[in-house]
């Protein structure tokens, strides 16, 4: 035992890179929503890639360390405090037995990641430690942390030499409360009228309170579908198509109002037309937006999406090397 949960925060879950490769049985990947912040946390504490950490949403927990540990907090500006003293983010920190990690109010972004040297040692379920709360599997007992929970930390050896390492300022993201997310238009965008596609791309959408690990719902415009006869196998709503798979990051618009971006814990397929997909790199940006923030969607080609992904991988390799 190494971490005792004194207060759980609003929604604190164990996450890793996710349970990928199980779409065939309808299992979404779960996993850290902001992959960049989560991974960099592991680099800071010297973990293997894929070690489990905690994803902290909007309001932080209060965690007592029952043995000394090497930790890092990355992601949202949710100022960490050790025994009440403010501590830096994006930097490797040492905590001693009995130290309490707590957090001040959220200043920007939405999700913080706590990395602990050795990783959070919960049982592996289907090659991942990520929590999928809807079904209640993975992570710590398949649910968000609760008061009184005790988490084991994996064996790490002495990592005290890492304390004080920090991510170069150039690599620390600044989170906007009105970001632009790049999307690839498709797979069922043909269902939208051309005018409505322009409306979708020109509207400044607002993140509603229904924005979580399953989906982010937006408000701000109304979209219309092309009139058609209901095909065999599709539902009656104009937004319905014959069931197909939903990529992570895909955007559906049930009823023509309130587009929903599907996230890591979303249903893997269904019968709503998906009009576009947020590119993988920008899902990290989405993960750092919060209820009442603004968002715009910009159409890009596959080339730009892949280039952004390559660039992100180079950046992460650079950070990893600098912290090695």
């Amino acid at each position: 035992m190494a971490i005792r949960v004194k207060q759980p925060g609003l929604l604190t879950t164990v996450q890793d890179t996710g349970r990928f490769g199980e779409y065939a049985i309808g299992m979404p990947p779960s996993g850290a929503m902001d992959v960049f912040s989560y991974q960099v946390g592991n680099y800071l504490v010297g973990n293997e890639e894929g070690a489990a950490g905690l994803e902290i949403t909007y309001f932080g927990p209060e965690l007592e360390f029952t043995e000394s540990a090497v930790i890092a907090v990355t992601g949202a500006e949710l100022p960490p405090k050790i025994n009440g003293e403010e501590a830096p983010t994006w930097e490797t920190l040492a905590v001693q037995e009995g130290d309490v990690l707590s957090f001040d109010y959220l200043k920007s972004g939405a999700r913080s990641y706590l990395a602990v040297a050795g990783g959070i040692d919960v049982p592996v379920f289907m090659h991942s430690r990520s929590t999928y709360t809807l079904i209640g599997l993975g992570g710590h007992e398949g649910r968000a942390l609760q008061e009184g929970d005790e988490l084991k930390v994996g064996e790490s050896g002495d990592r005290s030499d890492r304390v004080g390492k920090r991510v170069d300022d150039d690599h620390v993201p600044a989170y906007s409360d009105a970001p632009e997310l790049r999307v690839i238009i498709g797979l069922a965008s043909y269902r939208l009228t051309e005018e409505s596609m322009q409306t979708f791309l020109n509207t400044e959408w607002t993140v509603t309170p229904d924005a979580d690990r399953i989906g982010y719902r937006y408000r701000g415009g109304e979209l219309e579908f092309v009139e058609r006869e209901q095909p065999a196998g599709a539902g009656a709503d104009q937004a319905n198509v014959v069931d197909f798979g939903y990529p992570i990051g895909s955007i559906q618009v049930p009823g023509g109002v309130e587009p929903i971006v599907l996230n890591n814990d979303a249903v893997t397929g269904g019968g709503y037309a998906t009009i576009g997909t947020v590119i993988s790199v920008d899902r990290d940006t989405l993960a750092q937006t919060k209820t009442n923030d603004k968002t715009r969607f910009r159409s890009v080609g596959l080339d730009e999406a892949l280039e952004a992904r390559k660039k992100r991988r180079r950046q992460m390799a650079e950070i990893k090397e600098a912290l090695a």
Binding site: F59, Y105, K290
Partner: peptide, 9 residues
């Protein structure tokens, strides 16, 4: 009294 998290009041 402060709001601990963002949302609708």
């Amino acid at each position: 009294v402060k709001a601990p998290m963002p949302g609708t009041f």
